[in-house]
Simulated scan of single mutants.
Amino acid sequence: MLGNERLRQLEVLLDEAFVVPGTNIRFGIDGIVGLIPGLGDVLAGLLSLLIPFAAWVRGVPYVTVVRMLINVAIGLLVGTIPILGDAFDVFWKANRRNYRLLTRSIAEPRRHTWRDWVFLLLLGAGITVLFAIPLILVAWLIVLLFRS
Rank of each mutant, 00 (worst) to 15 (best):
L2D: 04
N4R: 12
N4A: 13
E5L: 12
R6V: 10
L7H: 01
Q9F: 13
V12T: 15
L13I: 00
L13V: 01
E16R: 14
V19E: 15
G22V: 06
T23I: 13
N24E: 15
I25R: 11
R26H: 14
F27H: 05
G28C: 06
G28D: 05
G28E: 04
G28I: 04
I29M: 11
I32T: 04
P37S: 04
P37A: 01
G38Q: 09
L39I: 15
L39M: 12
V42W: 15
L43K: 00
L43D: 00
G45K: 01
L47D: 00
S48E: 12
L50M: 10
L50G: 04
P52A: 09
P52M: 10
F53R: 08
A55S: 10
W56E: 10
V57W: 12
V57M: 13
R58E: 05
G59S: 11
G59L: 05
V60Q: 01
P61C: 06
V65G: 03
V66C: 00
R67P: 03
M68F: 00
M68W: 00
M68Q: 06
L69R: 02
I70M: 10
I70R: 05
N71K: 06
N71F: 12
A73I: 08
L76K: 01
L77T: 12
G79V: 02
P82E: 14
I83F: 12
L84E: 08
D86A: 08
A87F: 10
A87S: 10
D89T: 06
D89E: 09
D89F: 01
D89C: 05
W92R: 08
A94K: 12
T103Y: 02
R104S: 12
S105I: 00
R110F: 07
H112D: 15
H112Y: 15
H112R: 12
T113R: 09
W114V: 02
R115Q: 12
R115A: 08
W117F: 09
W117E: 05
W117V: 09
V118W: 03
V118A: 05
F119M: 10
L120G: 05
L121N: 04
A125V: 11
A125T: 09
A125R: 05
G126Q: 05
I127D: 03
T128F: 02
V129L: 08
V129I: 09
A132Y: 08
A132D: 09
P134T: 03
V138M: 13
V138D: 14
W140T: 15
W140H: 11
W140R: 14
L145F: 14
F146S: 11
R147S: 11
